[in-house]
């Protein structure tokens, strides 16, 4: 066996327990960020398509600030910002930062998919006597959500990979652990290869789940 594979195997064998735990943390942070992102995304998408200039402006400012600055800066900013006001561990600070970041992108996804629904749907619903909020909740949004699923899935994958950035505030998720391991075993190349593979596996599993879900929706319809 070539030398490189042996080292690679050694690194894998010595670290998989640590990475398993770190992987769970990565999944947790991603899941929390996704939930926060979807909630914020819905709220800000609705603000953006509302008739209120004030709500539109607030949403625009949020989206512009998030899209116009690097995620790593947002993580630092939120971490030091939040923890100066309330006591919050770095895991939650990271998850919230990632969620707030996500919200801006998800808001744009929802806005696009809501506006993409044929306006005849809204008219038919209004004509039946349903008010605007019922129309949004029962008719427009459920259809928009289906349409949003492929781009949302894409965004979730980006979030999973972006979660590696919270290592800068000391969260021991996969990349954080890889960084520490590499600093102590001096096998940087092999260690980052290992962690890269872990990310790839997670992304592939998630993509498969997503495809399965999209197919299921198609069959339902």
């Amino acid at each position: 066996m070539p030398e490189f594979l042996i080292t690679f195997y050694d690194v894998f064998k010595n670290t998989y327990k640590g990475f398993l735990q770190a992987g769970l943390l990565t999944i947790e942070i991603t899941a929390i960020a996704v939930v926060i992102g979807v909630v914020l995304g819905v709220i800000f998408a609705l603000m953006k398509i509302s008739n209120s200039k004030i709500l539109q402006t607030i949403a625009n400012i949020y989206i512009t600030l998030i899209r116009g600055t690097p995620l790593i800066v947002q993580i630092m900013f939120l971490y030091f910002g939040i923890t100066s006001i309330i006591v919050l561990d770095n895991f939650w600070a990271g998850a919230i930062a990632l969620g707030v970041h996500n919200g801006a992108y998800i808001a744009e996804i929802f806005r696009g998919s809501i506006q993409g629904i044929d306006k005849g749907q809204r008219e038919a619903s209004l004509a039946l006597g349903m008010n605007s909020s019922l129309t949004m909740r029962r008719i427009v949004f459920p259809q928009a959500l289906r349409r949003a699923i492929p781009p949302l899935g894409n965004q979730f994958i980006i979030t999973l990979k972006d979660s590696s950035l919270v290592y800068v505030i000391g969260v021991s998720e996969m990349f954080g652990v890889a960084n520490r391991v590499a600093a102590s075993n001096f096998k940087q190349f092999e260690t980052f290869l290992v962690v890269g593979l872990y990310y790839l596996i997670l992304v592939l599993i998630f993509s498969a789940l997503l495809r399965w879900y999209e197919n299921k929706l198609d069959v339902d319809k």
Binding site: D118, E123, A124, S125, L126, G129, Q143, K221
Partner: peptide, 22 residues
């Protein structure tokens, strides 16, 4: 806020049906 109540009493059928596909 008054219109929903009125529309509930006035039915409408559209050229393109506009059925709810979901």
């Amino acid at each position: 806020d008054n219109l929903a109540k009125i529309r509930a009493e006035v039915g409408m059928v559209f050229q393109h049906f506009n059925l709810f596909p979901h």
